Simulated assay, not measured.
Amino acid sequence: MRPETTTPMETAAPDLIHTSAAAGRSGRRSVRIAAATLALLGLAVIVVPLVARVDERLVDLGSALLPPSPAHPFGTDEMGRDVLLRSVYGLRVSLLVGLVAAAVSVVIGGLVGVIAGAAGGIVDRLLMRVVDGVNSLPHLLLGIFIVALFAPSVWAVIISVGVTHWTTAARIVRSEVLSLRGRPYIDAAINGGSSRMRIIRRHFVPALIPHLGLAAVLMVPHAIWHETALSFLGLGLPPHLASLGNMINDGQRSLLTGAWWPSVFPGLFILIPTLAVAVLAQYWRDRTSPRWRSELNL
């Protein structure tokens, strides 16, 4: 009898399975940590302003630049204001800007993408040239130009981000619509006499909702960074409003005296939710678009 032999693939199979299982457990743990982090930050944004007994705009020069302590866990800034309280208020404003701006971008981009993909021909080419033209402009510079047309306010920043970041959603929706147009059930609906609007409403929109949701989730941290950059440059929110960008800008002067907390903690309030959203968005993409996943994670 011939001795049994094993191929390299068979020998490596248990290792691949073990690696895949370990990667799956690590991924689920990361998702749970990210979800818990966002839930905790969201709870803080809602609860802290309700229970806080101190106005975040209250100036107390006698308590300026106090280091972190039980009374002020994140310390105080150069005006004696509590950094933790102002960071929570700043995060609330940033989340508001991010969510609304992401919704505006997805609505504009979704409409443009659906029209371009469904109409085709010259309409498609014209709209895609508009998308290319907007993409060729630096978004931050274009955002600065738009914000300069208005008085500093939350809505000026939302309009700036929404108008300059819709092109990504437009490209995603257009490519998905072009893919759907070649499906047999779309041809059957056309041959059955369905109008273009009915096809868009009954077939395109349900298939596009997961992709639009993912685009909106990915847009939120990008919008937060955009708002922070505008506020850091002094072009976003008014100085009297708590903004993470304003706080980091103000904290620069304190760094020269060795006070690191007025700028480091607001920076963490930007970085941590951004990373958490990125982890959840990656998980969402893997669940809604399995073709993007590695075979080891299937």
Results as ranks from 00 to 15, higher is better:
residue 264 V to W: 12
residue 15 D to P: 15
residue 130 V to Y: 14
residue 94 S to L: 05
residue 196 R to D: 12
residue 173 V to I: 03
residue 298 L to D: 15
residue 104 V to D: 04
residue 226 H to Q: 12
residue 236 G to I: 00
residue 182 G to V: 04
residue 96 L to H: 05
residue 106 V to Q: 07
residue 74 F to D: 02
residue 230 L to E: 00
residue 257 T to K: 06
residue 254 S to G: 06
residue 94 S to E: 03
residue 197 M to D: 15
residue 258 G to H: 06
residue 250 D to K: 07
residue 149 L to Q: 05
residue 30 S to C: 08
residue 53 R to I: 12
residue 151 A to R: 12
residue 94 S to P: 02
residue 243 S to I: 06
residue 221 P to Y: 03
residue 293 R to Q: 11
residue 89 Y to L: 07
residue 277 V to S: 00
residue 184 P to I: 10
residue 246 N to T: 14
residue 143 G to S: 02
residue 29 R to G: 10
residue 268 L to G: 01
residue 220 V to M: 02
residue 241 L to D: 02
residue 158 I to S: 10
residue 41 L to P: 04
residue 252 Q to A: 11
residue 157 V to K: 04
residue 181 R to A: 08
residue 86 R to W: 10
residue 140 L to S: 02
residue 91 L to A: 09
residue 239 P to C: 08
residue 210 P to V: 01
residue 242 A to F: 04
residue 225 W to V: 12
residue 139 H to V: 09
residue 102 A to S: 07
residue 281 A to H: 01
residue 202 R to S: 15
residue 14 P to E: 02
residue 93 V to Q: 05
residue 203 H to D: 08
residue 281 A to G: 03
residue 64 A to W: 10
residue 242 A to T: 08
residue 17 I to R: 13
residue 136 S to G: 06
residue 131 V to L: 08
residue 108 I to Q: 05
residue 266 P to D: 11
residue 284 W to V: 05
residue 204 F to K: 05
residue 138 P to N: 02
residue 288 T to W: 07
residue 13 A to Q: 14
residue 278 A to Y: 09
residue 240 H to K: 15
residue 120 G to L: 08
residue 120 G to K: 06
residue 285 R to C: 05
residue 152 P to K: 06
residue 115 I to D: 06
residue 94 S to K: 06
residue 127 L to S: 10
residue 10 E to A: 13
residue 233 L to N: 04
residue 14 P to S: 10
residue 38 L to Q: 00
residue 91 L to C: 08
residue 208 L to C: 06
residue 22 A to R: 10
residue 102 A to R: 06
residue 121 G to C: 02
residue 193 G to I: 13
residue 138 P to K: 01
residue 247 M to W: 08
residue 190 I to C: 11
residue 237 L to W: 00
residue 215 A to E: 08
residue 191 N to F: 14
residue 49 P to M: 10
residue 38 L to R: 00
residue 184 P to E: 12
residue 105 S to C: 14
residue 58 L to D: 13
residue 213 G to E: 01
residue 159 I to A: 06
residue 141 L to R: 01
residue 81 R to K: 07
residue 24 G to A: 11
residue 219 M to V: 08
residue 202 R to Q: 15
residue 236 G to Y: 00
residue 203 H to M: 04
residue 79 M to I: 15
residue 101 A to Y: 11
residue 54 V to H: 12
residue 268 L to D: 00
residue 290 P to S: 05
residue 133 G to T: 12
residue 198 R to I: 11
residue 135 N to G: 06
residue 55 D to L: 03
residue 134 V to K: 11
residue 291 R to L: 12
residue 179 S to I: 11
residue 200 I to T: 04
residue 58 L to V: 10
residue 298 L to V: 15
residue 292 W to C: 14
residue 136 S to C: 02
residue 59 V to H: 00
residue 167 T to E: 10
residue 121 G to Q: 03
residue 164 T to P: 04
residue 1 M to T: 11
residue 42 G to R: 01
residue 287 R to V: 03
residue 162 G to F: 04
residue 260 W to L: 13
